[in-house]
Design a protein around this nucleic acid. Structure first.
Lengths: 248, 248
DNA sequence: GGGGAGAGATGCCGC
DNA sequence: GCGGCATTTCTCCCC
């Protein structure tokens, strides 16, 4: 009933009852834990925040930092085990072969509730928004750039924007919403290779443009050695436009 | 004092007091919010979990899913504003030019506490562990592979393992702890280019090996066309070894 | 389900 | 600070 540290039985009943009711559970507690799955991890004793959601995902947050340090994905199985001196919280996922075991040595406070939330985040300012913007404002690339229908794109893999210049040369544009690193020129190169092959065009007759707010020095060199050009385009967050929520 | 919905004043006092005491705060509440910064985002009304940590980061969790949908990084400034009908929670970061505004229309429950936690996660099974393992067990690559001191590596950028075969040819190994995709062969290529240049060696005299548990078909083709080889190495999680906690 | 690429990626380390 | 890269990355989209 009552241990030196805390009333284990009451908390175990509370946890099991809330799990059964598919409530969200948040616990402030002293605990230590191990993770085993895609990697192995351990965390020594300390006071932190445990979150169990109705979808059976598990999050462990330390009192600082943006990210959970230990976690299990939705669909895991949760068990609460009475170890007399402490509570053992086991979360296991047979399909993913993952396991977390948390030794809870003291519960500071616990909060449980059913939460109703059907809303989805609506985001604007993605790379897709940026390429849409370029498609609608081709003069950002150059006076004579004429984008063509984007429908064809998926046939040759995902290409942000492509079209023709006044000489009739094919132009492929790769967008990056943040500073472009060394992978960007190589990605552009791969798209152009694929396009050249599938259209039966000489690869040297396709022009490549990397559009981004900035570019690292290394990436600039690579781009140049591949014969492509950089075009500075402001990140889409500053292109004030609306985007509809994703329905899903 | 008492609105139709909830006792705003009591909650505002509680929040301000806890913020002042640098406690961790978790709130179950009905809310809607917007984010503005590197992108723009909004989330319509719903019941969710708000977390405010002592380091002044902010997390918003919906009752499903592993990740926070709206967040602010540590060091942001938090303000609690009484709007009579609702509480406005503002988190702003001047340096990053980011802002979150949360309209809290109902508080279901709130939990605050000081949390003591100095522990750090100890992780094993990273790519670094994998390359260490290969360095210590070069026979995994081939009978005649001789790894050399890893001290030199940083001089030419980060190369997982490199050494010589019995003919004296330089061998560069790139490790991936999960299935290798198309970026892996290109990364290997970049390392070898850099190494060839800095050592004044003909690039064709350097052998490249991609070590990973598996590889996609595309990546295999790219690797072959670059003249490099794939070596199947099990992911490091299954190499049962110990790793010391990182001190930091 | 695999493959490929974006993300408000984040975080780490090295220069 | 930038740069390059790993991450138990996660997530989405498409084949």
């Amino acid at each position: 009933m009552d241990s030196d540290k805390f009333d284990i039985n009451w908390y175990i009943d509370k946890l099991n009852s809330s799990l059964k009711k598919k409530q969200a559970i948040v616990i402030f507690c002293e605990c230590s834990m191990i993770y085993s799955g895609r990697a192995e991890a351990s965390l020594e004793q300390g006071e932190r925040i445990l979150i169990l959601k109705p979808d059976r995902c598990l999050l462990v947050h330390q009192p600082y930092g943006n990210n959970s340090v230990i976690y299990m994905k939705p669909g895991s199985e949760v068990k609460v085990i009475d170890m007399k001196d402490y509570i053992l919280l086991k979360s296991s996922n047979m399909i993913l072969h993952e396991l977390v075991e948390i030794k809870i040595t003291k519960i500071i406070e616990i909060m449980t509730s059913h939460l109703n939330d059907a809303a989805k985040v609506c985001l604007f300012g993605t790379e897709k928004d940026m390429s849409d913007y370029i498609y609608d404002h081709p003069e950002l690339i150059s006076k004579d750039f004429k984008p063509v229908s984007r429908e064809e794109q998926t046939k040759y893999g995902y290409i942000d924007v492509f079209g023709y210049d006044k000489t009739g040369s094919l132009v492929v544009i790769e967008c990056k919403r943040t500073k472009a690193g060394p992978s960007a020129p190589q990605q552009l190169r791969r798209y152009i290779e694929r396009l050249a092959k599938s259209k039966g065009i000489n690869i040297n007759n396709i022009k490549g443009i990397l559009a981004a707010p900035s570019i690292t020095q290394n990436a600039r060199h690579m781009l140049k050695s591949l014969g492509y050009k950089f075009k500075k385009i402001e990140p889409p967050a500053y292109m004030k436009r609306k985007k509809n929520p994703k329905v899903n």
